[in-house]
Amino acid sequence: MNLDKVLKTASRVLIEAHLKPVIGTRIQPTGFPDLGAAEYSAPDGKGGLEKMLLVESAQSMANRLEAVCWDEATDDIIPELKGLPFVTVKLSGIGNGTDTTNSLLEFHRLNSPYIMNGARDDGISFADVIRKELGLGSAPGKKSPKKVVEAATTEDGAGDKERDEVAGVVNLRRLAAVCFQYDPNSLVHGIFLEKIAGRLRHPRALSAFIEASGVDRADSGGVKFDRVLPKPSVGGVDAKGGYGNVPFHRSEFTARSITAFFSLDLAQIRGYGLPAEATRLLKVLSLWKVRRFLDSNMRLRTACELEVDEKGGGIEVSRPKDFALPSTDELTVELAKLIKACKPHFAAPTTTALTWNKPAGKE
């Protein structure tokens, strides 16, 4: 099945990538505060249960799929994506004032407080720019809020109340067009502008996670040796200051199989109501992100570097049938054409520059 047919007719693409450790047999999973590793049981298909492990969460995978767009060596978007719009912010209120961040790296993308509270050269905040382009304002009889826009308390803003009422019907297609204009990436990984209006959201079109099955613990440990003061009391100090020999333990895991799962909702992307070339760009960009990630070194943590296990099944597309994930090179060529075709729908210039200043009185 060719790419054109899939992008036009399929409702979703489901991809499974079979992985293995680059060296050895142990893996270091993601950990959570007050929980540690996420261990659980799942039906084994034989009437019993199998021990499972979450290696990488959906939240973390969204960050990793965004990271493939950024070149840390040059501190810029990678050459293959030049011309794709995003928002950059100069953090003038922190450090020596030369630090920057951007919507490709920020945890809430366009909804980052550094972006929403950032201002253009004309002094207009990005939040006000978005409000105007969405046709939203304060409720009748109310002035526009002047307070600082706060960040959502969770990755998707769940449970966070809408702070300000807005006048006007929330048009989610218009929201998609505005997000596409400033950062198409935000429509791939989800956007929630709850500080403007609680109804302004699009869920992730591309979701992913990595889990392992048939797992068992591999516990080990060691000692941090102090060459100078193995017994800190001799020098009048204590272990709280980092002195002395300190034993430690660590828990890693072995697994019968490790699988990365990707789900791309093509129907959702079509529902944005964007021009045909913009819709296609989001679909191709999503597939490119998946392939680029799988082609990377996949070093999730110090003790967890994975690679595609070709003998164990490699990369499989479970839906639609008879479709194979194109190579990075093939998708890159297609992306270059689409970025050029979508230029009329992008912000001008494509990189929106803002400046963020630390709020007065905040230390």
Results as ranks from 00 to 15, higher is better:
202 H>E: 14
117 N>F: 05
299 R>S: 05
319 R>G: 14
344 P>M: 02
19 L>I: 06
250 R>Y: 14
229 L>P: 05
343 K>E: 15
196 I>D: 01
95 G>L: 10
330 E>W: 15
241 G>C: 04
173 R>Q: 15
75 D>S: 12
285 L>Y: 10
16 E>K: 11
14 L>C: 14
78 I>F: 07
55 V>R: 05
6 V>Y: 08
95 G>Y: 11
256 R>Y: 08
148 V>Y: 04
88 T>H: 04
261 F>Y: 06
32 F>K: 13
254 T>R: 00
88 T>I: 03
43 P>H: 14
120 R>E: 09
12 R>Y: 07
314 G>R: 14
37 A>D: 05
297 N>R: 10
1 M>V: 06
154 T>R: 10
178 V>C: 01
269 I>Y: 03
102 N>G: 02
237 V>Q: 04
331 L>Q: 06
212 A>F: 02
73 A>D: 14
188 V>E: 09
138 S>Y: 03
133 E>K: 05
119 A>P: 01
239 A>H: 08
359 P>K: 06
273 G>F: 08
310 E>F: 01
245 N>Y: 00
311 K>M: 10
72 E>A: 12
182 Y>R: 02
337 K>E: 15
234 V>Y: 12
228 V>Y: 15
341 A>N: 07
357 N>G: 14
17 A>G: 00
30 T>M: 14
339 I>W: 09
245 N>M: 04
89 V>R: 13
326 P>T: 06
215 V>N: 02
66 E>G: 07
283 K>H: 09
350 T>E: 08
363 E>Y: 06
129 V>P: 00
310 E>S: 11
302 T>G: 12
204 R>M: 11
349 P>W: 11
201 R>L: 07
62 A>I: 09
154 T>W: 03
161 K>W: 07
63 N>E: 01
295 D>V: 05
219 D>M: 12
101 T>M: 04
71 D>T: 06
311 K>I: 06
59 Q>C: 02
108 H>C: 06
176 A>Y: 09
187 L>N: 01
304 C>I: 11
327 S>R: 04
227 R>V: 14
45 G>F: 04
169 V>A: 14
162 E>P: 07
293 F>H: 11
263 S>Q: 10
186 S>I: 07
305 E>S: 11
89 V>G: 07
80 E>I: 04
193 L>M: 00
212 A>M: 06
40 Y>E: 12
335 L>A: 07
23 I>V: 14
239 A>Y: 11
204 R>N: 04
143 K>L: 01
344 P>D: 03
338 L>A: 08
40 Y>V: 05
203 P>M: 09
134 L>Y: 01
205 A>N: 02
61 M>R: 13
53 L>S: 05
85 P>G: 03
86 F>P: 00
184 P>W: 06
347 A>N: 07
321 K>C: 09
18 H>Q: 08
286 S>F: 02
166 V>E: 00
27 I>K: 00
194 E>A: 14
162 E>Q: 12
302 T>M: 15
268 Q>A: 03
88 T>V: 03
221 G>V: 02
300 L>H: 09
254 T>M: 02
346 F>R: 06
248 F>V: 03
